[in-house]
Simulated assay, not measured.
Amino acid sequence: MDVHGQQKAQEALDVEIKSFFDSAPPLRNIENVSEDLKKFIEMNSSGTRSARKVVCVTSGGTTVPLEQRCVRYIDNFSSGHRGAASTEYFLKAGYLVIFLYRKGTCQPYCSLLPDYPFLECFEFTHESGIQVRQPYSEAVKWAISEHHAAVADGTLLKLPFTTIFEYLQILHMVATSLRSLGPNALFYLAAAVSDFYVPWESMAEHKIQSGSGPLDMRLVQVPKMLSVLRSEWAPTAYCISFKLETDVKILLEKANAALKKYKMHMVIANELLTRKEEVTLVTDNENIHVRRDPKQVGDEVEKHIIEHIVEKHSTYVDNLDQKVSRDTGS
C-alpha cells in the first residue's frame, strides 16, 4: 500500500474509532475511574518513585450486549488466570500495576484458593465467630497479606469492566493517563477482546422475544485500536499483545503479522491446548520459546514470561534514554 493508501486507511480507521466512542454508552462510574487513575499517577510520580515503571495488565474477556437492558450477550471467554498471575510477577519485579480486569475472573494472589465456592475456606467457631478452615489457612493468609500490602502501598490499582464498551473506554483513559510516563509505561494486553459488536444505537432496548422467530442480527467489526494505542494514546510506551490460535501451524505466522500490522514491540503466541505450559515471545529480531518447568512444584509459565519482558523493557527504556541524550546533546 502506498503512502496515499495508508493515509486513506488511517482516516477511515479514525472515523470508525470516533463513531465507536461517540455511540458507546457512557461509563456509569467514569468519575470514579478518572479520580482513581489521577490519584494513582500522582502518588507514584514524586520522589524516588518517579523512575518506577508502570504496567497496565488487561485480563479476562469482554462481553457484547445484545440488548441495551441486557439479558443476553456474546462472551469472549477467558478465566483471567494469565493476567492475574502476571500481575503478581510484575509487582514482584518492582512495577506499579493497573489491573484492568473482567468482573468475576481470576484475581491476583487467589490462585491457591478454591475457584468455587470461596466460602469453602471458612467455618464457624464455637463462639459464633468465623475462622479460616485449616486446609486453606496459609493460602488465605498469604493472599490477604500480599493483596492488602499492594493496595495499601499504592502499587496496585484494580479497574473492573464487563462489556466491550467499558473495556475500550477505560483502556483509552489509562493509556492517555500514562502517556506522560513515556517509555516507562508498559501495556500487557492479555484480555480476550471481542472482534465484533452490536452498535448501541441499533441495539434492541428491551429483551429480545423468542416468539418473534429466528434471530437475525448484524454484528459490526470492532475498530482495531492497537495501532492508535501505539501511535496516539501512548506512543512511546512498550506494548505487548497476545495471539491465541487452535492451529499451531499458523500461530507464528499470525503473531508475526500482528507484530507488523499493529507495530507491537512483542506478541505472545500461545496455542489453546498448551497455553499454560509454553508460549513463544515474538519480536522483530527473535522468537523466544518459553516453557514452565514441570519438575518444579508451583512453577508457572507466567513467571518466565515476565522475566523476559522485564529485561526487554529495561533495554527499551535505556535505548530511548540514550537516544534522547544524543539528540539533546546532554
Score class of each variant (00 low, 15 high):
2 D>C: 11
9 A>Q: 15
10 Q>F: 08
13 L>E: 10
14 D>I: 11
15 V>T: 15
18 K>F: 01
20 F>G: 05
28 R>S: 14
29 N>C: 08
31 E>V: 12
31 E>N: 10
32 N>L: 11
35 E>F: 04
35 E>Y: 02
36 D>Y: 05
37 L>Y: 06
38 K>I: 02
39 K>H: 13
50 S>W: 00
53 K>C: 09
57 V>T: 08
58 T>I: 08
62 T>A: 06
62 T>P: 01
65 P>R: 05
70 C>Q: 15
75 D>M: 12
77 F>Q: 12
77 F>W: 05
95 Y>H: 07
102 R>F: 02
102 R>H: 13
102 R>W: 00
107 Q>K: 09
109 Y>G: 01
109 Y>R: 02
115 D>T: 14
119 L>S: 15
121 C>A: 13
130 I>R: 04
130 I>G: 06
132 V>Y: 05
132 V>G: 03
135 P>A: 11
139 A>Y: 05
141 K>N: 10
143 A>G: 06
150 A>K: 01
153 D>N: 13
154 G>P: 00
160 P>F: 05
161 F>P: 00
166 E>H: 04
170 I>Q: 02
172 H>T: 10
172 H>E: 14
173 M>F: 11
173 M>T: 06
174 V>T: 04
180 S>L: 09
182 G>K: 07
183 P>E: 13
188 Y>I: 07
188 Y>L: 04
194 S>N: 08
203 M>N: 03
209 Q>I: 07
210 S>K: 12
213 G>R: 03
215 L>K: 07
216 D>F: 05
220 V>L: 03
221 Q>Y: 00
222 V>D: 01
237 A>C: 04
237 A>Y: 03
241 S>T: 15
243 K>I: 03
244 L>I: 09
244 L>C: 06
246 T>S: 12
248 V>D: 13
258 A>M: 11
265 H>L: 00
268 I>T: 04
269 A>R: 00
279 V>I: 14
283 T>Y: 03
288 I>H: 01
289 H>K: 14
291 R>M: 13
297 V>C: 04
303 K>D: 06
304 H>W: 12
306 I>N: 05
308 H>Y: 08
308 H>N: 15
323 K>G: 00
325 S>I: 10
325 S>N: 08
327 D>F: 01
327 D>P: 09
